[in-house]
């Protein structure tokens, strides 16, 4: 599903975020990427949904090299990946329903089908009663659940999240992680960048430790300590 070969990312300001890393993530895997701030976790996630390109090396997602996309192909590529951010990135002027349905409007899904699918995911994340609320009327956890619903509404085969519980309390964080577990159980590959070690340890999933812009450890299962 995700393959990175000798990937280096150097930003325009000269900062090296990733230094010659190679990693492989299979279909339907649930993987955490952990490491201290500035280690390169977010860069790794951004490479997966092609917000950025590697300076050196190859990134293969779903069998396609992200360097070789034509500009026109990028939107279609992204429709197969659900992305979740620490700051939620919801459109403030749209209701919860519209924030989620937008993803389906993009693919020209019929209106009836949109309604059915949006209410399905809202039920899954427990927000059916907030469908008409605006993002700013929601709590942090509710906003993040909306963002998750948006990411999964069109059944992507890959879901990536960058610090999805970074702004949330431990109880809400656990609820969010349960949702990710369910998404994974339904067949999607899930990759989460995080530094919430206690939760990661509880989840007992494969964990890739990034430190100083390189992969330090790749733990198949079990407790992590950095």
């Amino acid at each position: 599903m995700i393959k990175m070969f000798n990937v280096t990312k150097r930003y325009e300001n000269g900062i090296i975020a990733l230094d010659n890393i190679s990693v492989s993530i299979d279909k339907e895997e649930f993987v955490f990427i952990v490491g201290p701030s500035g280690a390169g976790k977010s860069t790794l996630i951004k490479l997966i949904y092609r917000e950025i390109l590697p300076t050196m090396g190859q990134v293969i997602i779903n069998g396609r090299n992200i360097n070789r996309f034509k500009k026109k192909e990028i939107p279609y590529f992204r429709r197969n990946i659900g992305v979740i951010f620490q700051d939620f990135r919801l459109i403030e002027t749209k209701t919860v329903f519209e924030n989620i349905s937008f993803t389906l409007e993009v693919t020209e899904t019929p209106t009836k089908e949109i309604k059915r699918r949006v209410y399905n995911v809202l039920e899954m994340v427990g927000l059916t009663h907030k469908a008409d609320a605006l993002p700013l009327q929601l709590s942090g956890g509710e906003q993040q659940r909306t963002a998750i619903a948006r990411a999964i509404v069109n059944n992507p085969s890959l879901v990536v999240a960058d610090e999805p519980t970074g702004n949330l309390d431990p109880k809400t964080s656990r609820q969010i992680m349960d949702i990710f577990k369910e998404i994974n159980m339904r067949g999607a590959t899930v990759v989460i960048a995080s530094h919430a070690l206690d939760i990661i340890n509880e989840m007992n999933k494969r964990t890739i430790v990034v430190e100083n812009h390189r992969i330090k450890k790749d733990i198949k299962k079990g407790a992590v300590c950095i």
């Binding site: 949904y49 917000e51 026109k72 939107p75 279609y76 590529f77 992204r78 429709r79 992305v83 990135r89 919801l90 459109i91 002027t93 937008f102 993803t103 993009v106 693919t107 948006r150």
Partner: peptide, 14 residues
């Protein structure tokens, strides 16, 4: 611009 960026990230064409 944030709204536009989000639209792009969920796969909207230009």
């Amino acid at each position: 611009r944030k709204e536009i960026e989000i639209m792009k990230l969920v796969g909207a064409t230009n």
